[in-house]
Computed example of a mutant assay.
Amino acid sequence: MLDNYLITILTIMAVWSIVTLGLNVITGLAGQFNLGIGVYMGTGAYTSAMLTTVGGLTFWEAAVPSILAAALMGLITGLPALRVREDSLAVLTIGLVFVFESLLVYLPYFGGPVGISRIPSARFAGENLSNVQYLFVALGALGVVIVACTYLKRTWLGLALESVREDEHATSVIGIFPARFKLYAFIIGAGIAGLGGVIYTHFMRYITPYDFGFMPSIFVLVMLVFGGLGTVRGAVFGACLLTALPELIRFVQDYRSMVYGAVLVLLMLYEPRGLLGDGSFLWRHLQRAGTTVRQRVSKTFLFLTKGRPYAKNS
C-alpha cells in the first residue's frame, strides 16, 4: 500500500508533467519562448477554486470551465505576443506573469496574498476521493494529455506548428499563416496547463498567488529543457525527474540546491538537447537497445512458431 508521502510525490509529478506538456506545445512545437506558463496554470487553478468555493460547483463541473478559462487566457496573452519574437517574447511573458501575480495579490476578491483555502476535494458517488483515488485521476488526466500531444505532433496542425518554429518566412510562402498557428499553440498549451492547475488545486486544497508566479514558470521551462525540448517523452521525464530529485538527495539536505544546480549546469554543457531529446546520447542508446530487443523477440517468436531451420531436413 502506498503511503501518503509517496502518493503526494507521484501526484505532483503528474501535475508538473501536464503543465510541462502544455509548455511543450507552445515552446517545443511552435518555438514561442514563453516564460509565463504559470499564468495559464494559475488561471485554471483559481477559476476552479472560485467555482467550487463560491459558486458551489463540484470538481467535475468546474473542470471544463476552468480549462476553457485558461485557454481564453492563452488567446488573450497570445495576441500581444504576435508582435514580438524570441528575447522580446520572453520579456513580454515575464511581464505578464508579474501582472497576473499582482492582480491576484491586490484584488481581495481572489483572496489577496493569503490565497484561497478550504477548497473542496474531488467527490465521486457522494464520497470524497481518497489520496490514492485522486492519484489515479491525476494519472488518467496525464495519460489523456500524453495521447493528445502525441497525436497532435502527427497531425497537419502539429506539422504546421513545427514549420513555424523552423522558419516563419518559408511557412508563410507555402500558405500557412504563422500568426494564426501561434495563437493555436497558445490556446492549446494554455488549456493543458490549466488542467494541471485544476488538478493541483483540488489536491492541495489551498492555493496562493505565489504558487503560479515567476519561479514556478521558470521551473517548468527547466523541466522541459532538461528532459528534451519538443518531445512528449522529454517533457514527462524532465518533470518527473526534477520533481523527485530534491527528494532523492535529501541525504545531502544542506547541499541540495548546490547539487541540483550542478546537475543542470552539467547537463546543459554536455547534453544541451536534454536527456531524452531527439539525437541525445541517452535517447540514441535507448533506440539501439530497443531495436536489439525487438530483433531478438522477433527471432525468438519465429523460432517458437516455425521451429529450427534445419528441422525440415532431419
Results as ranks from 00 to 15, higher is better:
residue 147 V to G: 05
residue 147 V to W: 05
residue 147 V to L: 15
residue 147 V to H: 09
residue 148 A to K: 02
residue 148 A to H: 00
residue 148 A to Y: 00
residue 148 A to D: 01
residue 148 A to I: 02
residue 149 C to Q: 02
residue 149 C to I: 10
residue 150 T to H: 07
residue 150 T to F: 01
residue 151 Y to Q: 14
residue 151 Y to C: 07
residue 152 L to P: 05
residue 152 L to Q: 02
residue 152 L to E: 04
residue 153 K to F: 01
residue 154 R to P: 00
residue 154 R to T: 06
residue 154 R to I: 01
residue 154 R to Y: 04
residue 155 T to V: 13
residue 155 T to C: 12
residue 155 T to M: 09
residue 155 T to F: 11
residue 156 W to S: 13
residue 156 W to H: 14
residue 156 W to M: 11
residue 157 L to T: 13
residue 157 L to V: 11
residue 157 L to K: 05
residue 157 L to C: 03
residue 157 L to Q: 09
residue 158 G to S: 12
residue 158 G to R: 09
residue 158 G to P: 12
residue 158 G to D: 12
residue 158 G to I: 07
residue 158 G to M: 11
residue 159 L to Y: 07
residue 159 L to A: 11
residue 159 L to T: 04
residue 160 A to M: 03
residue 160 A to S: 13
residue 161 L to C: 03
residue 161 L to I: 10
residue 163 S to Y: 05
residue 164 V to Q: 00
residue 164 V to E: 01
residue 164 V to I: 08
residue 165 R to L: 11
residue 165 R to Y: 10
residue 166 E to I: 05
residue 166 E to Q: 07
residue 166 E to V: 07
residue 167 D to E: 14
residue 167 D to S: 11
residue 167 D to Y: 09
residue 167 D to I: 09
residue 168 E to F: 04
residue 168 E to W: 00
residue 169 H to S: 14
residue 170 A to L: 12
residue 170 A to T: 03
residue 170 A to M: 13
residue 170 A to G: 15
residue 170 A to S: 12
residue 170 A to F: 10
residue 171 T to K: 02
residue 172 S to D: 12
residue 172 S to M: 13
residue 172 S to F: 10
residue 173 V to P: 04
residue 173 V to T: 15
residue 174 I to T: 04
residue 174 I to G: 04
residue 174 I to K: 07
residue 174 I to H: 03
residue 175 G to L: 15
residue 177 F to D: 13
residue 177 F to Q: 15
residue 178 P to E: 09
residue 178 P to V: 09
residue 178 P to Q: 12
residue 178 P to T: 08
residue 179 A to V: 06
residue 180 R to W: 11
residue 180 R to L: 04
residue 180 R to N: 14
residue 182 K to I: 06
residue 183 L to C: 08
residue 183 L to G: 05
residue 183 L to T: 09
residue 183 L to E: 07
residue 184 Y to I: 15
residue 184 Y to S: 04
residue 184 Y to T: 03
residue 184 Y to N: 02
residue 185 A to K: 00
residue 185 A to I: 01
residue 185 A to F: 03
residue 186 F to S: 06
residue 186 F to R: 06
residue 186 F to E: 00
residue 186 F to G: 02
residue 186 F to I: 08
